[in-house]
Amino acid sequence: MNSVSKKVLFINLDKSTSEVKTFPDLHKYIGGVALGLKLYELYQNEDPLIFSIGPLNGFFPFISKTSVVFETDGLIEDVYFGGYLSSRLRFSDLDSLIIFGRASQPVILDLQNESVSFREDDAPHNSLGLPGKRSFLGIVKKQPLLDDYFLSPESGLGQKFEKKRLAGLSVTGTAVYTPKDMDKYTTVYKQLLARTKEVGAEHGFFPSCSGCPMGCAKSNLGEVGGNVLSHSLVACGFAENIYTDVGTVFSCLNILGYDYTHEDIENLPILVQNVLKNLG
């Protein structure tokens, strides 16, 4: 876990290469949409497709979305998926994944932690990654479909995959963490898990996102728009009441060893505004 920097996996589809870079100067962007937009600003000339998670993904309940930032029809889009992708990126020890360029032929990216295999688009899905530890984002009827159930909230992402000749993305994460104060971490985890009444969704028996007990009917719909802090942590929009509380967020970050201050959290929307101004 990178408590003082952001770790980004760069994948170049033109050259079939990949590289991990660490960015201490991006630490203040915390994660999710804030980190994704800043990375977009830095690499906008390379048509980046950027997947980002936040520092609490995989560690706490109701924080199970993944932010995706990309350009379509001249507009910068930010969309949010549920499913297992955020926890698998967390357990790959990555904060972001950036995909550049266009493959010479349709390709499936098979990631295991920082390692990338470029597979042919007809590779059997059960040959990708490790069972029980992977997430798979594929294309069905020209639309992205995550883990056989979770949808993108709009059509631009499917077009972006098609443009890049990206037929699928499999992410397997095998990293294991031990928070310094495991007892305190467990206590806070259970306190948050007990706050289901504050979640704006009904309990159900639908497929749920990793780490979410709700099984709600809307888990597969994805999200657009919403609160900057919540989308930078990449929490579920229905749990916005919990994860827009600066005190709660600070406690969670602190337990995991992050050095963010209350002011860092409070000032995040201003950082995002500045990035958006730079992007025009």
């Binding site: 995989g58 560690f59 357990f91 530890k133 994460g173 990293a175 294991v176 963490y177 031990t178 928070p179």
Partner: peptide, 10 residues
């Protein structure tokens, strides 16, 4: 996993 002092799937 928490009971084994771990966070992760491995």
């Amino acid at each position: 996993q928490r009971q084994l002092k771990k966070v992760g799937l491995e």
